[in-house]
């Protein structure tokens, strides 16, 4: 049996809200240690992995490993209408593993709304832990998420793809659209800061800007974001969620293949 409890204004729900423009259904695995969500976008070019340890929930109990296909779009839609200070309880039982029950209790505890959400059949991903991958990239950029968001916003002014390339002591974002082009150089400052750019080998990736904007939305839930690039490999965007938590989200985005 699985039971987890969270307040409506929790980071978990904010993250679900933020990934909805990429995915509507997700594979959710729960164990005694926490919850893992994995999802592929409809085009099959972007992958999301979200990990939230059990202790991040107000209450968490899972006595048997479970894997479920959840229409997170429907779940978030139902929860949105609840009072912002309400408490949400999600339950799945072994006896009836065709749906989960989501209950929303008002802050005064005088009103409880419950709805049953049918589980969906979904390919279960068997992706190993992505964390180790981050050491093997040609270039990694640790930057404040506000910088990442601002750069993505600039690039959005030019409707097209974005090229991310390593340059001397930094990286370059370049977008070419119908109305012109936009170039952002992001350099390693001389003094120690919260920016860390490490380049092992030159690399350049062309990426769909629409996805970058979606990633930037979630990184707003964290102070820092890390981009990892390698030739011919998916871009990795990773951020911790919240300040003092071990929750994290990792995105993979396949680069465009020229020619």
């Amino acid at each position: 049996m699985l039971e987890l409890k969270l307040v409506k204004e929790s980071l978990f729900l904010n993250v679900l809200e933020a990934i909805l423009d990429l995915v509507a259904v997700a594979s959710v695995s729960c164990s005694s240690t926490g919850l893992k969500l994995q999802a592929m976008d409809a085009k099959g070019v972007a992958f999301i992995s979200l990990l939230i340890p059990a202790k991040e929930f107000q209450f968490y109990h899972c006595d048997k490993d479970l894997s479920m296909g959840i229409a997170i779009g429907d779940m978030v839609e139902a929860i949105r209408s609840a009072d912002k200070d309400g408490t949400i309880t999600i339950k799945a039982s072994d006896e009836n593993f065709r749906n989960i029950t989501v209950s929303i209790e008002s802050p005064e505890c005088n009103e409880t709304t419950s709805f049953s959400l049918l589980l969906v059949t979904l390919k279960r991903f068997c992706i190993p832990e992505l964390q180790g991958l981050l050491k093997k990239y040609d270039a990694c950029v640790q930057m404040p998420s506000v910088d990442f968001m601002r750069i993505c916003k600039y690039l959005s002014n030019v409707d097209g793809d974005v090229d991310i390339s390593t340059i001397d002591k930094g990286i370059r974002f370049f977008a070419l659209g119908k109305c012109g082009c936009l170039n952002v150089k992001y350099m390693q400052p001389e003094k120690a800061t919260d920016i860390d750019i490490s380049v092992q080998a030159p690399v350049s990736l062309t990426l769909d800007l629409k996805y970058m904007n979606s990633f930037a939305k979630v990184s707003a839930l964290s102070n820092q974001v890390k981009l990892c690039l390698s030739k011919g490999q998916p871009l990795v965007v990773q951020c911790k969620i919240g300040q003092k938590t071990k929750s994290r989200i990792i995105y993979l985005l396949a680069p465009k293949i020229k020619g």
């Binding site: 085009k43 099959g44 070019v45 972007a46 992958f47 992706i127 190993p128 991958l133 011919g232 490999q233 998916p234 993979l252 396949a254 680069p255 465009k256 293949i257």
Partner: peptide, 14 residues
């Protein structure tokens, strides 16, 4: 489609 293949191959090699 080529991006999909790239991502699939990436997972296969993990």
């Amino acid at each position: 489609a080529s991006e999909q293949v790239l991502l699939q191959k990436f997972f296969e090699h993990m």
